[in-house]
Amino acid sequence: MKKTAWIFFVIGILYASYLLLLLSIPYLEISRGVDFLKTKQLIYHIKHWRYSFYIHVFSSILIIISGLFQFSKTILNKYTRIHRISGFVYLVTTLLISGPAALVMSFYANGGYPAQTSFVLLSILWLGSTFLGYYYLRKKEYEKHGKWMVRSYALTLSAVSLRLYSYLFNVFQLTLNPVDLYILLSWASWIPNLLVAEILIKRGLVNCILSNH
């Protein structure tokens, strides 16, 4: 049962990554009139925001896919080199590239202070949990390392859940004005993910994966 659930999870994440890739391709034009950037005309001229946006957009898929390899017991126990390389890519890209870019972007988020507060908290928690995952890895405390990486990846997947909830709200025609809807999405994109991560940790998922570390 667990194996089947894992297979569906992997397929779901890979499909979501494919959709994110499709959404990212138009931004290769580096033009202010593309999709989401149409809502950012007043700040597009701000260089640190603009650079952060493109960095975050083009690195997000790499983080999602590299992070996925961290939670396969088979890869961890039989293909440790893949686990280590993908883990290195995940840590470096999150801590030094995409995470800082996301933090810069969060101060300029649509929706005003409520949404900005949400995304600032998300960015700080994402960077913090990832750093703690690295910290405990260096100390060879693998159980704590695994737990913090689960939390980190749950926050990574906020990029997926944000778009999923946005799609579902459109399907069910949720009657909220655009600003209120975006504020709701900003909080819903990561809080449920973190709650699910804590439930999985409490149920011993990490201990199961690391049992043969």
Rank of each mutant, 00 (worst) to 15 (best):
residue 57 V to I: 15
residue 34 V to H: 03
residue 135 Y to W: 11
residue 168 L to H: 07
residue 213 H to A: 10
residue 49 W to D: 12
residue 148 W to F: 15
residue 95 L to T: 10
residue 158 S to G: 15
residue 166 S to N: 15
residue 212 N to T: 08
residue 206 V to H: 03
residue 163 R to I: 05
residue 110 N to G: 11
residue 43 I to E: 13
residue 76 L to P: 01
residue 192 P to T: 04
residue 40 K to L: 06
residue 147 K to E: 12
residue 157 L to R: 02
residue 154 A to M: 03
residue 155 L to W: 06
residue 44 Y to R: 08
residue 138 R to K: 15
residue 11 I to A: 15
residue 45 H to N: 15
residue 9 F to D: 03
residue 5 A to N: 13
residue 111 G to Y: 06
residue 24 S to W: 05
residue 185 L to G: 06
residue 161 S to W: 08
residue 155 L to G: 06
residue 191 I to T: 10
residue 146 G to T: 01
residue 108 Y to V: 06
residue 178 P to M: 02
residue 78 K to T: 09
residue 136 Y to I: 09
residue 101 A to R: 10
residue 181 L to Q: 15
residue 117 T to P: 00
residue 44 Y to A: 08
residue 109 A to N: 12
residue 146 G to D: 00
residue 62 L to S: 12
residue 79 Y to E: 13
residue 131 F to G: 09
residue 66 S to L: 07
residue 82 I to Q: 00
residue 26 P to A: 10
residue 168 L to N: 09
residue 168 L to Y: 11
residue 113 Y to F: 14
residue 56 H to V: 07
residue 126 W to G: 08
residue 69 F to P: 00
residue 27 Y to R: 07
residue 28 L to V: 09
residue 80 T to P: 02
residue 63 I to F: 01
residue 50 R to P: 09
residue 140 K to H: 12
residue 162 L to H: 02
residue 71 F to W: 05
residue 106 S to G: 07
residue 126 W to K: 01
residue 129 S to Y: 13
residue 109 A to S: 15
residue 10 V to F: 00
residue 63 I to C: 07
residue 64 I to H: 00
residue 86 S to R: 05
residue 36 F to E: 14
residue 7 I to F: 11
residue 122 L to G: 01
residue 59 S to P: 03
residue 93 T to Y: 04
residue 10 V to Q: 03
residue 138 R to Q: 13
residue 67 G to A: 05
residue 49 W to N: 10
residue 152 S to F: 00
residue 85 I to R: 10
residue 173 Q to L: 12
residue 153 Y to H: 04
residue 15 Y to W: 14
residue 53 F to V: 11
residue 7 I to Y: 12
residue 181 L to P: 07
residue 96 L to A: 13
residue 105 M to E: 08
residue 68 L to V: 01
residue 33 G to S: 12
residue 57 V to F: 03
residue 96 L to I: 10
residue 94 T to I: 13
residue 174 L to S: 03
residue 202 K to Q: 14
residue 14 L to Q: 07
residue 135 Y to A: 01
residue 4 T to S: 13
residue 46 I to P: 07
residue 64 I to A: 12
residue 206 V to K: 06
residue 158 S to K: 07
residue 186 S to Y: 09
residue 125 L to N: 02
residue 65 I to A: 05
residue 112 G to R: 04
residue 81 R to K: 14
residue 205 L to E: 02
residue 172 F to C: 02
residue 183 I to H: 04
residue 54 Y to K: 11
residue 69 F to K: 01
residue 9 F to K: 01
residue 145 H to T: 01
residue 144 K to H: 01
residue 16 A to P: 07
residue 116 Q to C: 03
residue 123 S to R: 01
residue 104 V to I: 15
residue 26 P to I: 11
residue 161 S to M: 13
residue 61 I to F: 04
residue 33 G to M: 04
residue 20 L to P: 03
residue 97 I to N: 05
residue 196 V to C: 06
residue 156 T to I: 06
residue 78 K to G: 06
residue 147 K to V: 00
